[in-house]
Amino acid sequence: MPLLEVEDLRTHYFTEAGPVKAADGVSFTLEKGESIGIAGESGCGKTTVAMSLMRLIKGGAVVGGKIMLGDLSLLDMPMKEFLKVRWERISLISQAAMGALNPVYTVGAQIVEAIQIHRKVSKSDAWEQTRGLLAQVKMDPQRAKSFPHELSGGMRQRVMIAMALACDPDIVIADEPTTALDVVTQVQVLRLLIDLQKRLNLSLIYISHELSVLGQACDRIIIMYAGKIVEMGATTEIFTSPQHPYTQKLLSALMDIHSDISIPESIPGKPPDLLNPPEGCRFSPRCTVGQENCGEDAPVLVEVAPNHYVACHRINESK
């Protein structure tokens, strides 16, 4: 049995113009110790999926689907119960550079708070544990007494990672953890994260718009487009034999320093308006290889190779 099972997740944001279907029938599973990456353009719903797992959707709601964490049905739990799932079972690493740490408390105090919400430990024990966590992310434990503004972006991100590990969670969601950092720091933080994931056998959901990062960090990759999963498979599969036209475009947009073509190809058109998504396949207006029925029926995910799923009419028909 997989550790986490997401089935037909539908999350809508409510606006005056109508509901925005930010996640529209998303299904995937996550095994213990597996790391999975979710990629896509901004606004494709990848963060919405993560926030739905934590039940942190603001200005909207999960309107359908099922999220099973082992035997627990996360969406059906009363909020009071669910508070115990947060951080204890699923924790979140968000962009520390973008103010994910509270500016008026020391970073140590914030980690201690996470521990003390879930564990009945004395203050001094919690601080001791906090220093241990900071050492684990290769920080000077003395920095526990620092305020966020006294730390560099990379350090803050490390604090965020340490905090996410505070309660030994089953699943860690990393939402663009390296995005706002400079390249060198990015690499350091990424390495640290990969290392910790392996060492602690964490289940990781890594959200990023950078496929290259996911390629390094994840066992499997999910490609999302306009609230739907368009392709899902093992990292090597996705990189070596992408099937969906959108995945292919994304990959070719990655600059390959070994290839001769130095100008990355861009995807024509704009991401669709999720208030009124296009009929049928949502990528069809931008797709260069589409057929007639693309604009009518929505394609479903089909297994094209073992554990490699694609939602595209062209593939389905050729099968």
């Binding site: 934590m54 508070l83 951080w87 924790s91 103010g99 740490l101 919400i117």
Partner: peptide
């Protein structure tokens, strides 16, 4: 709307906290 509020909520803090 700040990110640290989301962090706090994700930590499992109660509404009052």
């Amino acid at each position: 709307r700040e990110h640290y509020i989301t962090t706090a909520e994700a930590k499992g803090a109660s509404d009052t906290r």
